[in-house]
C-alpha cells in the first residue's frame, strides 16, 4: 500500500485552475521527482500535500487515513515540508533553527528530550553544519542557508519529505551532497517527493518522475520513459543532448531551445 496517495487533486486560485485531476502516490523507500516548466503547478501540488493549502477537489490519504482527519500535529510528524523560499524572521543560531524541526514531536510545554538532541546532533553532522552550528542564520551564504533548511526538515524524521527545489541555490558539489543525503534518507525507509529543475539530477536520483505541464500530469514513470524527446518538447519546448532515444539511460542535458518554426505541426 502506498504511503501518501492523492487522487484527482484539483486546485484553483482566484478562479484560475492551477492543478487539474492530478493523481500521485509515494511509497516508503522511494524518491519521486516532480518536474515541469515554471508555472506547471509543482509547488502548488507540494503545498497541497504538505497541508498548507486545501485542494478544491480530490482526496489525499496518508497511510490509509484521509489526510483531513489527521490533526495538524500528527500530519506534521509524518510529513515534513521544505519550501522553496524560507524567510527566517529572527537571526537565530543554526542549531536552534534546526532544532525547530523537532517541535512537531513535542508537547506544547515540552523541552527537547535526549532523543531529540541525538536526532539534531546526527543531522547537523550529516549536513556538514558542525562548523556553523553557533552562527546566526543571517550571516550564512545562500548555499549554507539551504543546508540549514534541509537539516531542519530532515530532523523531523517524517515518513514523507516534500522538498521544493532544495538544490537550486547550490553549486554542483553541494547539489550532489544534498541529493546523496536525500538518497540516504530514502534508503533508510522514508519517502521523498522532490521538485527539481535539473533533469540530469532528477534522472540520476529519482526512482520515478512525474512531469507536470499546465497543471496536469503529462507523463509519469521511470526516467527513460518520462524524459523522452517528445515529452520534453511538449512540456519545455527544448531538445536535450544527447537525444533521449540515443542515450538510453535517461540522462538529460538541456541543449537548446526548439524554435517555433521547427516544432512538429
Amino acid at each position: 500500500m502506498s504511503h501518501l496517495i492523492g487522487r484527482a487533486l484539483s486546485f484553483k486560485r482566484d478562479g484560475q485552475s492551477i492543478l487539474e485531476q492530478i493523481d500521485l502516490h509515494i511509497e516508503a523507500g522511494e524518491m519521486l521527482g516532480l518536474i515541469g516548466p515554471n508555472g506547471a503547478g509543482k509547488s502548488s501540488l507540494l503545498r497541497l500535500l504538505a497541508g498548507v493549502t486545501e485542494a478544491d477537489a480530490g482526496t489525499l490519504t496518508l497511510a490509509g487515513k484521509p489526510m483531513n482527519q489527521l490533526t495538524p500535529k500528527s500530519r506534521a510528524q509524518q510529513i515534513a515540508y521544505l519550501p522553496q523560499l524560507t524567510e527566517v524572521a529572527w537571526p537565530m543560531s543554526v542549531e536552534r533553527l534546526v532544532s525547530l524541526g523537532r517541535l512537531p514531536h513535542l508537547e506544547d510545554w515540552q523541552q527537547a528530550t535526549p532523543e531529540d538532541e541525538a536526532a539534531i546532533e546526527k543531522v547537523i553532522h550529516q549536513t556538514d553544519l558542525t562548523a556553523f552550528r553557533n552562527r546566526p542564520y543571517n550571516t550564512l551564504s545562500g548555499g549554507e542557508q539551504a543546508r540549514v533548511q534541509l537539516a531542519r526538515a530532515l530532523v523531523t524524521e517524517a515518513d514523507i519529505l516534500l522538498a521544493d527545489e532544495p538544490v537550486s541555490a547550490l553549486d554542483p558539489a553541494h547539489q550532489l551532497d544534498v541529493m546523496a543525503l536525500l538518497h540516504a534518507y530514502v534508503q533508510a525507509g522514508h519517502g521523498v517527493i522532490i521538485v527539481l529543475h535539473d533533469l540530469a539530477l532528477a534522472a540520476h536520483y529519482c526512482n520515478r518522475l512525474q512531469l507536470l505541464h499546465q497543471g496536469r500530469t503529462l507523463a509519469e514513470g521511470r526516467a527513460d520513459q518520462v524524459l523522452s524527446d517528445h515529452h520534453l518538447e511538449a512540456a519545455y519546448g527544448i531538445a536535450i543532448n544527447p537525444p533521449a532515444q540515443q542515450s538510453g539511460h535517461g540522462f538529460a542535458l538541456p541543449w537548446r531551445r526548439i524554435e517555433a518554426d521547427e516544432k512538429e505541426p
Partner: peptide, 13 residues
C-alpha cells in the same frame, strides 16, 4: 515555528 514563515509553520502543525 513562525520564525520559519507562516507557510512552513502551518506545515509543522
Amino acid at each position: 515555528l513562525l520564525t520559519l514563515g507562516e507557510e512552513t509553520a502551518g506545515s509543522m502543525g
